[in-house]
Nucleic acid binder design. Sequence first.
DNA 1: CCTTGAACCTGGGCGC
DNA 2: TGCGCCCAGGTTCAAG
Length: 296
Amino acid sequence: MPELPEVETVRRGLTPAMEGALLVRAELRRADLRFPFPADFSALVSGRRILSLGRRAKYLLIDLEDGNVIIAHLGMSGSFRVEEGAGPETPGDFHHPRGKDEKHDHVVFHLLSAKGPARVIYNDPRRFGFMDITNRDTLASHVFFRDLGEEPTGNVLDASYLAQRFAGKAQPLKSALLDQKNIAGLGNIYVCEALWRAGLSPMRAAGTLVDAKGKPKKALVLLTEAIRSVIADAIAAGGSSLRDHIQTDGTLGYFQHSFSVYDRAGEPCRTPGCGGTVSRAVQAGRSTFHCPKCQK
DNA sequence: CCTTGAACCTGGGCGC
DNA sequence: TGCGCCCAGGTTCAAG
């Protein structure tokens, strides 16, 4: 599910309910998601105040007042929702029946703030998500973060950085952009979209965008801009709502209506004057969508 | 070092 | 209505 824009949208959606609130108790309804929860997870976080919510790549970060940080990754199908008001008397006894999906409510953060009690509930049918806890001071060296590349937000990511990463690589651009060690936070959708915006084939070797001196060719400058713009546009639109992914307030992001190639196999390319047809291919086991006519 | 494929897990959609 | 197959936003590990 969630690539960087979706996680950023989740962070913004959860902030009003969580920032400054007391985390009264973290209720774990099972011992593991993708990985087991740390044995002391609930004890470490319960009774702590939440300072702020952050994000790094596709990870949501919940800063606690004692210096610990809850790390949450949403995997493919993870989502959070907020329920305001008094809690249920018994687990599962929520005011709003959720039917069969309620069995995938795996974590409940019980909160208390000036606005009253609330619950932030983590739901994840496929359980590819995971949570951990670490100290703020050692976050950057945590195994989840130490090898991550640059964020594609703001002006940090530049073509010279990517030239350094791509130089001499025969690896296709699709794989190079999905590699979190190069750029942190891109996923299948936004890689496809960025390559289309840049007019570059997903099959093209990454090293062909770097000149003999190791400097970025013009195409790599365009690609860098395309990556930054597609991420910025998606965040502004509240991310993409696909299949089971909805925002924290139950509303839908609408960037999926702006897809140019993703999930559009057989449909006309949207490049003005192109006239090509979007095709689907498989690279490294993932679907790649692109227009063979205008992406070279 | 490279790349591909399978694995983790559940559910939705489609063809028959 | 049901069964079987394929597909899905991610990451990691094994194998070639």
